[in-house]
Design a protein around this nucleic acid. Structure first.
Lengths: 167, 167
DNA sequence: TTAAACTTTCAATAATTACTGAAAGTTTAA
DNA sequence: TTAAACTTTCAGTAATTATTGAAAGTTTAA
């Protein structure tokens, strides 16, 4: 496999993975492109490479910057902005976990807590609702605690975690 | 909060969570409804409760059965089929992890392996591609190993994992 | 058997989500 | 300042994904 083919395959696959996990294709592909680029790229570069519009590029870059996994750079004597990605894979995982926890898991935990705390009127239905949402609450909360631990930990957290796991 | 309100809130929230993680709303909501129902429900019951069509209900039930988290039941002297969900939260998590690993993570691992194994022609671009896809490969593979361990483990795996984590 | 009771399939359509491109906004060198 | 170089915004449109509902298929009691 040649460089160009490998590159395209990687970008395309990362886009598909993103899509099936709720991250839009352009966002995932821009990230993939920056991830494997030794140099920072301009908006022009990204548009050309991925064949997407200026607006799309701009909006998704903003989102990636929001997530803390892409940075803006400037070059002396050049007005353009250049973009480069976080290159440390663990830091990438940390940030993604953090964002998704904040945006998607935390609100669900809140609802599960509320719902599982309704007054038990002794009907079968109410009992089951309380029991099952409580069980989910415990699960989701445990997972989120795991994520929090991981997210707020120093470098190489994942290595440590994996060692624990494989034991 | 009354039973009906709590129930609706739970079903709706589970639907939203599903959506942002690549699981369609109807599928997530059918699961939520069965999850909190003490009794098995008929297709009619589900359609009425969630106000969705027969076709939609049928297709998503099939998917849930495929995933191994919903079961068919029959009642003596009744032609209808009744549906009930896996009630053990850990088993639920296990099955979901298993399915998503199989469908979405495994193919990505394959591509990452291929791409990170291309011939190094000593150009900057190729070097970076190899380095970064290799790093992702290691990450994704480690995570998948984690999932595999968990998925093939006996009951209460999660408790064990969490104890390891909190230490 | 057969016909009523039920489930599945799938083409058509609706709903959602992503993308474009041009206009508006911002920054900076001169 | 100002105008060129660049970025952002957002209304309109395209692409994707989910849903409907009716026809076809299946099962079973009589």
């Amino acid at each position: 496999m040649e460089y160009q083919e490998a590159k395209n395959k990687f970008i395309s696959t990362w886009g598909v993975l993103g899509t099936s996990w709720g991250i839009n294709k352009a966002m995932a592909q821009i990230h993939a492109l920056l991830w494997i680029s030794p140099e920072a790229l301009s908006m022009e570069d990204i548009m050309k490479e991925l064949r997407i519009s200026r607006g799309n590029t701009s909006m998704n870059l903003r989102q990636l910057i929001d997530w803390g996994i892409v940075y803006k750079e400037t070059k002396a004597g050049d007005r353009k902005e250049y973009f480069t990605s976080e290159k440390d894979v663990q830091e990438l995982a940390r940030q993604v976990a953090k964002e998704r926890s904040k945006r998607e898991i935390k609100p669900v935990i809140k609802v599960l807590k509320e719902v599982s705390s309704i007054k038990d009127d002794s009907s079968e239905n109410t009992k089951e609702l309380i029991k099952q949402t409580k069980a989910l609450y415990d699960l989701v909360e445990s997972m989120d605690t795991m994520i929090d631990k991981v997210v707020n930990q120093e470098k190489n957290w994942m290595t440590k975690v994996l060692i624990k796991f494989i034991k």
